[in-house]
Amino acid sequence: MSDNHELEGISLLKSERLAVLPIDSYDLTEELSILDGHEYGGEYDTFTFGSWSSHVLANGSGADSDVAFRPHDGSLSLTELGKKLPNIMSLVTGHFPLDRLQWVRVFALREGIIAPHVDFLEWAKPGTRLQVPLRTSEESLHSENDILYHIRRGEVWKIHSTDPHSARSTSGTARLSLCLDFADDGEPLEIRGTVAATEPIRVVERPEPADAELEELIASGAGLTLETMRAGFRPFAELHFERHAHATAAFDWYVQAARRSGDEDVVAKAQAFRTYCIEKRGEGEAFVW
């Protein structure tokens, strides 16, 4: 990758690396194993393919069953899982302001992908979402619009979550990423105890899609049915990570493919999934495949 291309990608990237934490000073090995074994209820399965899970360490109620993200006005309370992870929580309390912090979660992604989506569509005012990988590898990538990038372990990133974005990991070991959601009052977050960044932001170049491979993908829609549509979306999301294309292209290809089925219900469902992921959804609204 040329320096010019890397600089161009970085200049277009709206997500920001805010800081780097001294993550090696925290003994996380045992706690990451606890997260590996923690069960997930599947609340966000609509968006995810392969192995993705969300684990709540702190929220507004302290209840383990309180897992569906939403803004709240209350104070932050540890869940039972959070109480088992004191080193991870000390990473949070030692470096981040707590007055605006509303949710502490860890996202696990293994041999999986998240459908391109826009966060906070349900609420009038978006919050501030930070991610800090606790365990990751080169196979774990994020996307934003048409840009692909990698977040290294210990890097603190403010995710620009109101543009279409996605994530994928092809690794058999789960990427574990700390996700911190703050109420957005317009003030910048003061992150303490950071260390200097020693590596440049990593933007990943990928080739343009060939007409023949796009046609092959879209032609596969001839076999789509209402029963196979969910599993059938994954190759469209995957291609966005393999070829230079905007995140929303996955839905464009998918709707085109759905038309090849000749089934208007399949086409309507494909269009509805696009709307739900990147255009409009109500608070508590669930998409039913």
Score class of each variant (00 low, 15 high):
D3Y: 07
N4F: 13
H5C: 08
G9L: 12
G9M: 15
G9K: 10
I10K: 14
I10A: 14
S15V: 04
L18N: 04
V20P: 07
D24L: 03
D27T: 14
D27L: 13
E31H: 06
L32C: 04
L32Y: 00
L35E: 11
L35A: 09
G37Y: 03
G37M: 03
Y44E: 11
D45K: 15
T46M: 06
G50H: 00
N59L: 10
G62S: 11
G62H: 10
D64N: 15
S65M: 05
F69H: 14
H72P: 04
G74N: 11
G74I: 04
G74E: 11
L81F: 09
L85H: 15
I88P: 10
S90R: 07
L91A: 08
L91N: 07
T93W: 08
R100L: 11
W103D: 09
R110Q: 10
P116N: 02
H117I: 09
F120D: 00
P126T: 01
G127T: 01
G127A: 03
Q131L: 14
V132R: 05
P133I: 05
R135N: 12
S137Q: 15
E139G: 06
E144R: 12
N145F: 02
I147T: 14
Y149V: 07
I151K: 05
R152G: 08
G154S: 06
G154M: 05
V156Q: 05
H160A: 14
D163L: 09
P164Y: 02
H165P: 03
S166Q: 06
S169Y: 00
T173S: 14
S177H: 12
C179L: 13
L180Y: 01
L180N: 06
A183Y: 06
D184E: 13
G186M: 02
G186F: 01
P188F: 05
E190R: 00
E190A: 03
G193C: 10
G193K: 09
V195C: 01
V195A: 00
A196L: 15
A197K: 12
I201R: 10
R202F: 06
V203Y: 05
V204C: 15
R206H: 01
P207F: 01
E208G: 02
E213W: 05
E216D: 15
L217I: 01
I218G: 04
I218D: 08
A219T: 07
A222F: 04
L224I: 04
T225P: 05
L226W: 07
E227D: 14
F233T: 07
F233K: 06
R234Q: 00
F236D: 01
F236G: 00
A237G: 03
A237K: 01
H240D: 10
H246E: 13
A247C: 13
A249T: 11
D252F: 07
W253A: 02
Q256H: 11
R260M: 07
G262A: 00
V267H: 07
K269V: 11
Q271V: 09
F273V: 08
F273P: 06
T275S: 11
C277R: 04
I278T: 15
R281D: 13
G282Y: 03
E283K: 00
E283V: 02
E283P: 01
G284W: 04
A286P: 15
A286W: 13
F287E: 12
F287L: 13
V288R: 15
W289I: 02
